[in-house]
Amino acid sequence: MGSTSAGRQDGARDRDSEGRARNARPRDGLGRPLPYGADGVARQPEGVVRTPEQSVAEAQELLDEGKPFHAHEVFEDAWKSGPQEERALWRGLAQLAVGLTHAARGNVTGGARLLRRGAGAVEDWASSGAGQARPYGIDLAGVVAWARELAGDVEAGGEPVDARGRAVRLRGAA
């Protein structure tokens, strides 16, 4: 039998414990699907409620490991579970992690676009009444500068970037 739109050879759809469609294919460190049965990177659990400090620390660990796709999941959880006035911050950080993911996969246009969009969102949040320059120790000015520089480098180089080597330092230089 041929492959279905869900990617399974047996025609069945992957479902989670509540019956929702959920792709169970293993993934590599950049979130790309691998063939069923391949060894992949453990998935980041979804829907985890963390403190903002835990979100920043866990996302930084994942970025340092070269797993920006997984860091994006942490930021997305913070965006969805956090207070309304911080959602734009976490959404912007998630966009930056996805931008790095695309840049590492070699998607020059998408990577640069998401890096700039995320930088703009973070900058807008920081300049809004709800924003602050260093929420939870995050160096927002440094993050924005990193994203814009990387976007330019991605476009100029046209090659995949090293996700680990080009990871942002959320709280500034180590």
Rank of each mutant, 00 (worst) to 15 (best):
A126W: 09
G157Y: 01
A59T: 03
P35I: 04
G152R: 03
A57N: 08
E73Q: 12
V49M: 07
D39N: 10
H102D: 12
A141K: 13
E86D: 15
D39R: 15
Q9S: 12
E76P: 05
H70A: 15
D153K: 15
V49F: 06
G158D: 08
G7W: 02
E159T: 09
E86G: 08
E149N: 07
V49I: 14
V143D: 04
A94D: 00
W146H: 12
F69P: 00
P26R: 03
E18K: 11
T101G: 10
A6R: 15
R134H: 14
L170W: 07
D162A: 03
W79F: 08
D16V: 03
A145T: 14
S5P: 01
Q9I: 07
R43E: 15
E58G: 11
A6G: 15
E65P: 02
V168R: 04
V161C: 05
S55N: 10
G2Y: 02
P33L: 06
Q44T: 14
Q60W: 04
A38F: 13
D162H: 06
Q9G: 09
P45F: 01
V144E: 10
S128C: 11
L89R: 13
L63N: 07
R91S: 14
D28S: 11
E46S: 11
G37A: 09
S5A: 13
A97C: 11
S3H: 09
V98E: 09
G47A: 05
K67V: 00
G106F: 05
P26H: 05
R50A: 04
R8V: 03
G37H: 00
A21W: 12
A97R: 00
E18S: 14
G165C: 13
E53V: 10
A78I: 01
Q54N: 02
A163D: 09
R22P: 00
G120W: 06
A156S: 13
E53G: 03
S55K: 02
E46H: 10
P160W: 04
E61N: 11
V144N: 06
A147Y: 01
G152N: 03
P35T: 04
A21Q: 12
D16L: 07
P135H: 10
